[in-house]
């Protein structure tokens, strides 16, 4: 199985350790993982601002980098949602279709494709609150959502449950958006920060020591708010926990 690894632009620059955890985690399984060297971004900042024409070349480059792989895997639900559901600025060739269909977020890939049953190398004895990125939750269906009448399920929780020691705590508003929203975080700064502060307080009240998410972007925003507010909470990407890099 040939897997192409995409590392989101913000993660490459600001949280390389999450990329490293993702790569090392994937390498534990019987697959070939390659990081195409010419990768940049998934195009989301442009597309979400309505600038589809401006996103076309970025989408093309992505397809060029990744079309030869069986699977494209990335530690971000949000970027996965972009590739799978919004790569519409370019001609829908067989290659584009192949890339869109075979792009998976790390959680989905471990849960649905590799069907990993155990993470014996990992243990994490902490109180954990899960944060769902909205694109991962409602776009990729990482978990059931509170708005709908449907049976409970959660792929991130399924995976984390296989790690020794984790104790889960619940938030009052388990799937309310944290206010990151990509460019929203700077274009609509006041509302974004207020949403982030409210999210941090909910996490704080829950008694969580760590907030774990499949998306670092939301966490960077929440962590930035928590630090400024002086709230003692730690934030980590699910890859770091599943690979046993934090304990």
């Amino acid at each position: 199985m040939e897997v192409g690894l995409f590392i989101p632009c913000y993660m490459d620059a600001l949280e390389p350790e999450v990329g490293i955890s993702t790569l090392k985690l994937l390498e534990r399984f019987d697959i070939n993982v390659t990081y195409p060297f010419d990768q940049t971004c998934c195009g989301q900042p442009m597309t979400n601002t309505g600038c589809h024409t401006e996103a076309a070349e970025t989408e093309k480059l992505f397809v060029k980098n990744f079309s030869q792989f069986d699977y494209i895997v990335m530690p971000s639900g949000s970027c996965t949602n972009q590739v799978r559901h919004h790569f519409d600025a370019i001609k829908q060739t067989d290659e584009v279709q192949h890339v869109r269909k075979n792009t998976y977020d790390l959680v989905e890939f471990l849960h649905d494709i590799l069907k990993v049953e155990d993470f014996p190398w990992a243990s994490f004895s902490h109180k954990v609150a899960i944060h769902y990125n909205c694109n991962a939750l409602r776009g990729l269906r990482h978990a059931s959502m509170s708005e709908r009448r449907e049976p409970f399920f959660s792929k991130p929780k399924d995976l984390l449950s296989k790690v020794k020691g984790i104790e889960f705590v619940d938030l009052e508003r388990p799937d309310e958006c944290c206010g990151f929203g990509g460019t929203f975080s700077v274009f609509e700064e006041g509302v974004s920060a207020k949403m982030g502060q409210d999210k941090v307080m909910d996490q704080h009240r829950s008694g969580a020591e760590y907030v774990i998410s499949a998306d670092s972007s939301c966490l960077m925003h929440q962590k930035g708010c928590a630090m400024r507010m002086g709230v003692d909470l730690k934030y980590a990407h699910i890859a770091q926990i599943l690979n046993g890099d934090l304990s």
Partner: peptide, 9 residues
């Protein structure tokens, strides 16, 4: 239309 995080709730 920009006063939204596109969260889908």
């Amino acid at each position: 239309p920009f006063a939204s995080t596109l969260n889908g709730s």
